[in-house]
C-alpha cells in the first residue's frame, strides 16, 4: 500500500536532485572557461530547475494547500532534503563539474526513461518531457569527458582525478531502500538497481574513448536519499534560502 507521504518522499528525491545541481551550475554564471560554456551551463541549469519545479509542485500538492514548490525549496533544512550526495559536491575545476554532470546525466536519462512508463500518469508525463532535455545534457557532458580525458596531459590528469574523486558518490544511485521497493512494487518508481548495468556500460565506453580508467574503488558513500548529507549542503541552503528566511511571509 502506497501512502501519499511515501509518494511525496519519492518526488522530493527527484526534485531535490535537479534543484541542488541547478544551484551548483548557477554558481558558474559569468565564470565559465568560454562564453559558449557559460551559455551551455545555464541551459542545463534551466532544464534541471524547470524539472525540479514540476516534481516539487507535485510533492507540494500532496502535502496540502499551504505547501508550494517554494515552501519546499526554501523552508526545509538540510536533513529534509533528499538529493543524492553527488549533486551537492563542489564545482571544483571544470573537469570536476563535468565528471559530476556526466555521472549524473547518464543515470538521470536511464531513470527518466524508466519513469516515463510509471503507472502514475503525472510522473510519467514529467519524465517523458524531461528525458529529451536530459539526453542533450548527457551528450554534452560525455563530450567534455572525452575532450578533457584525451586533451592535454594536464587535462587528462585533472579529468582522471575528478572521475576517481566523485566515484564513491555514484553507488547510492543504484541502491533501493524500503521506500523504493514499495513504490517499485506499485509500478510507480523505477528500480534503481536495474539501471546499474546500462550505466556502467555507457560510463565505461565513454571513459574508454577518453583514455581514462574506470575507478576500481569499491567503497561507496550513501545517505543523501535518506537526508544524511555532506557538510556542503548546509552552505548551499544558507545561500539559497536566506531571503525568504530573512523576510518571513513576504511574497516576491
Amino acid at each position: 500500500m502506497v501512502e501519499p507521504s511515501m509518494l511525496q518522499e519519492y518526488l522530493l528525491r527527484l526534485g531535490d536532485n535537479g534543484l541542488i545541481l541547478a544551484q551548483r551550475l548557477a554558481e558558474w554564471s559569468g565564470k565559465a572557461p568560454a562564453l559558449e560554456e557559460d551559455m551551455a551551463l545555464a541551459n542545463v541549469a534551466l532544464d534541471l530547475l524547470g524539472q525540479a519545479r514540476l516534481w516539487l509542485a507535485y510533492a507540494a500538492e500532496i502535502e496540502g494547500p499551504d505547501a508550494s514548490e517554494d515552501t519546499l525549496a526554501y523552508l526545509r533544512d538540510a536533513p529534509a532534503f533528499r538529493n543524492l550526495l553527488l549533486v551537492e559536491q563542489a564545482n571544483g575545476n571544470y573537469a570536476e563539474t563535468m565528471a559530476r554532470q556526466f555521472y549524473f546525466d547518464v543515470w538521470h536519462k536511464l531513470l527518466l526513461s524508466g519513469l516515463a512508463r510509471s503507472h502514475d500518469e503525472r510522473i510519467a508525463g514529467i519524465a517523458a518531457k524531461a528525458v529529451k532535455e536530459v539526453a542533450y545534457h548527457g551528450e554534452r557532458s560525455a563530450g567534455w569527458v572525452i575532450r578533457l580525458g584525451a586533451g592535454t596531459a594536464l587535462s587528462h590528469q585533472r579529468m582522471q582525478a575528478a572521475i576517481d574523486d566523485l566515484w564513491p558518490y555514484t553507488g547510492e544511485m543504484f541502491t533501493a531502500d524500503a521506500l523504493d521497493q514499495a513504490l517499485i512494487a506499485a509500478g510507480i518508481a523505477c528500480d534503481p538497481a536495474a539501471l546499474h548495468a546500462p550505466w556502467l556500460e555507457k560510463v565505461g565506453a565513454t571513459l574508454d574513448a577518453a583514455g581514462l580508467t574506470l575507478p576500481a574503488a569499491k567503497w561507496m558513500q550513501s545517505g543523501g536519499k535518506q537526508g544524511r548529507h555532506s557538510e556542503r549542503l548546509g552552505y548551499i541552503l544558507a545561500e539559497m534560502q536566506f531571503l525568504p528566511r530573512a523576510y518571513p511571509g513576504a511574497a516576491w
Partner: peptide, 22 residues
Amino acid sequence: ITRAPSLKRKAILLAKVQDEGG
C-alpha cells in the same frame, strides 16, 4: 541567481543572465 527568493525568479534571472552572455 543562487539567492533568488523564489524558484520562478531564479529561473527567470538565470535565463536573463544567459541572454546577456548571448
